[in-house]
Amino acid sequence: MIADLPIVNYLVIDGDEPYLQATVCDACEAAYLGSRIACARCGKRTFHHRRLPSKGTVGSFTIIHRAAPSIPTPFVSVLVDLEGGTAVKANLVGCPPDPEHVSLGMAVELTTFEAAADESGTRVVAFGFVPSDRGVTE
């Protein structure tokens, strides 16, 4: 049996459709990706989870041409403003890595891809975003 592991604990892949899950402060509604001990905005210590929308727009981006050894380039890093306001950073995939094809404000949606696998068959699943007009690629 192949086991899939999400690359981070705020990516949920055990349902019918992958999604990002925010850790939200019970008191002030500040949203975080990953778990927290106390809220960095108000200091309260209780949280609940919220499923984040899969669609958003590119709030910022960069195209990396020089990176650490072993990291393939070029790739596009985007800050996505999800519907509802939470920002998330990821790769933009399914899109040529040049400024003619990546633009501020473009509509994108969540996708997942295999980031790595080991000999036992464990696969690491990462998330990224694709331009919405291209549909979700595998």
Binding site: L5, I7, V8, Y10, A67, A68, S70, S77, K89, A116
Partner: peptide, 26 residues
């Protein structure tokens, strides 16, 4: 920063399984 880091086990409060540079943006 390297890319591979087996065995794949969640680490830290974000449950990171492997280095994310170049996979989850920069």
């Amino acid at each position: 920063l390297g890319r591979e880091r087996a065995p794949f086990e969640p680490r830290g409060h974000d449950g990171v399984v492997m280095p994310t540079e170049g996979l989850l943006g920069t």
